[in-house]
Amino acid sequence: MPDPRRLDALRQTLAHLDAKAGRRQQPDVLPLGVATVDAALGGGLVFGTLHDIAAEAPAEMGAAAGFAAALAARAAARAIPSRPVLWIQQEVASFEAGGLYGPGFSAFGLPMGRLVVLRVMRTRDVLWAMEEALASGALAAVVAELVKNEADLTATRRLSLAAAEADTLALLLNHQVSPHASAAATRWRVCAHPGPRDAFGGLGLTAFTLSLVKNRHGPTGCWHIVWNHHERVFSAATSGGVVAAAFDRPDRTPLARSA
């Protein structure tokens, strides 16, 4: 006669394993809100994996940081219960491309009350902190900003493993395009795109050119997208089209592709 308590414990373990396996089969995703991009990604950016974002050129760091901030804002907005975003920055990064500016994040769709900033000296500190932060599961997103491309295959693999533990969006933000191989699920190159004008010729919503150069689960591609910081949603940009239309009817605008 087996011990009923032991049987019960075994059943619970099995259920736990099943749940884990089930989660792996149907991973949670963060859709960008642009049908074409989401289709290429298989629904959106997968939680539990690492995503690598690089600025196409040093001057494009604002755009790359903007894209990362937009993704973090989306992740933070859907996290229930509310969880903050940790942004890890090397000291030298603030000299290169400016320090993180809270009011700007608030204006960009990520309220600064949800932002925790960690400033460290060395690259290895950034990686250590990111690994710890991912393992804790207390955050909606972790953005680790690297000035030099020192995250090699080993480092990214470690980070991917740490990311798999929790449903945290893991973003690596590189100041320049990295020559290293990476274990990241997706790799993006970002540069700014001339944004749409408003009716009076002033600045409109923020626009990016995204190049998806690596995608483990689908095709790569290149898109122009616009970030609506009020609604926290991306939409496809029309080159030179009327902006208001693009932002009201994101899905119907034709996909602009460039080589």
Binding site: P81, S82, R83, P84, L86, L100, Y101, G102, P103, F105, M112, G113, L115, V116, V117, L118, R119, V120, D125, W128, A129, E132, A133, S136, G137, A138, L139
Partner: peptide
């Protein structure tokens, strides 16, 4: 059960212990 606030507090402590508490900051208006 997992308590997000407690986990966050613990993470901040760990980061603070390693890098210094003044390096883990939140922006306040």
């Amino acid at each position: 059960g997992p308590d997000g606030a407690a986990e966050l507090a613990h993470l901040i402590d760990r980061l603070g212990a390693r890098f210094g508490l003044d390096r883990v900051t939140v922006p306040v208006a």
